[in-house]
């Protein structure tokens, strides 16, 4: 290395040093420590005690663990397709030549900015079985026996999916930006070829924005597996019959309520692996459906 190169390296390192330091202290060390704790019995108050694979073995036989896995997957099976499809529909509507597009976009986007706690309070009130607005409306239009949204274990996951749907505006804006980036030449060519609007959507528009659909799907999976706040606040933890005991909530309970920090760390690593596997799976599947321009 010449002295000029060394100097440049030093200057570069100096500029990135805040991140480098933060990486070592707030990422690298915690990741290693977490991996170590996952093989330990650890309650924060005393030193961790090595127990080998015990935490991971416990997980296999812990029925509550499996319940949390099931709850999380079931919830995402409802919430993820619902959210992605609704957001895409709204974005497609907004992409039409309509007046007041900015106003509509603002209205759809705003709820996604609302603090989770405040949003949870509002939805607690709306979904209240006896006094809530939703059931008042349902009774008003003739449903004599509306669902007990937050009380009936069968309805708690759909309720939370509804709450998360309210926050899909973020995704709408991303889709809309992608739709506006679809080359006009493609649309015009398909029009000249006489494609119907539906065929145009399926064969031109959707393939053109498929990288963004894929991006939203990935973000949705990663976030969905870590769903925590609204369930934790609205249901005070696990909900009726532990129906919304999600994976992240069970990690939190193990770490900060039962002080099983080792077990919580082991669960976190399994989550990490799960996310990795699902992401790889999605990227494999995406190869068949995602079209990148210029390829």
């Amino acid at each position: 290395m010449t002295s000029g190169e060394r100097r440049r390296s030093l200057v570069g390192l100096a500029f990135v040093s805040p991140w480098l330091l933060g990486f070592l202290v707030f990422t690298a060390y915690p990741v290693c420590a977490s991996l170590y704790y996952s093989f330990c019995d650890y309650d924060v108050l005393s030193r961790p005690v090595w127990v080998g694979l015990l935490n991971y073995q416990d997980m296999v036989s812990d029925s509550v663990f499996w319940l949390s896995v099931r709850n999380t997957l079931l919830f995402n099976l409802i919430a993820l397709p619902l959210g992605l499809a609704s957001a895409l529909t709204l974005a497609l509507l907004l992409n039409q030549p309509v007046k007041m597009r900015g106003t509509f976009r603002a209205i759809y986007y705003l709820p996604s900015l609302v603090p989770a706690v405040a949003g949870a309070m509002v939805w607690l009130w709306i979904l209240n079985a006896r006094l809530g607005l939703l059931n008042q409306v349902l009774v008003g239009i003739g449903f004599s026996n509306p669902p007990q949204w937050l009380v009936d274990p069968a309805w708690t996951k759909p309720s939370l999916a509804l709450v998360s749907l309210w926050g899909c505006g973020n995704t709408v804006v991303i889709y809309l930006a992608a739709l506006q980036g679809v080359p006009q030449s493609l649309i015009e060519a398909s029009m000249i070829d006489g494609a119907s609007p539906f065929r145009r959507l399926v064969h031109v528009t959707l393939p053109a924005i498929s990288p963004v659909i894929y991006f939203n799907l990935l973000i949705g999976i990663i976030g969905g597996l870590q769903v925590f706040t609204s369930a934790f606040i609205m249901m005070g933890g696990a909900g009726p019959e532990r129906s919304v005991l999600f994976y992240a909530i069970y990690i939190y309970q193990n770490a900060f309520e039962y002080r099983h920090m080792g077990y919580a760390s082991a669960m976190a690593w399994v989550l990490c692996m799960l996310i990795l596997v699902l992401t790889l799976l999605a990227s494999q599947i995406s190869k068949r459906f995602v079209h990148y321009q210029g390829e």
């Binding site: 915690p30 920090m261 919580a264």
Partner: peptide, 23 residues
């Protein structure tokens, strides 16, 4: 180093939650 930075974005918060707390 930039590649490393990108990788850190993938780490889910629960993984670092316990060690950060104990730190």
């Amino acid at each position: 180093l930039f590649g490393l930075l990108l990788v850190t974005m993938m780490i889910p918060f629960p993984v670092v939650m316990v060690p950060l707390y104990s730190l």
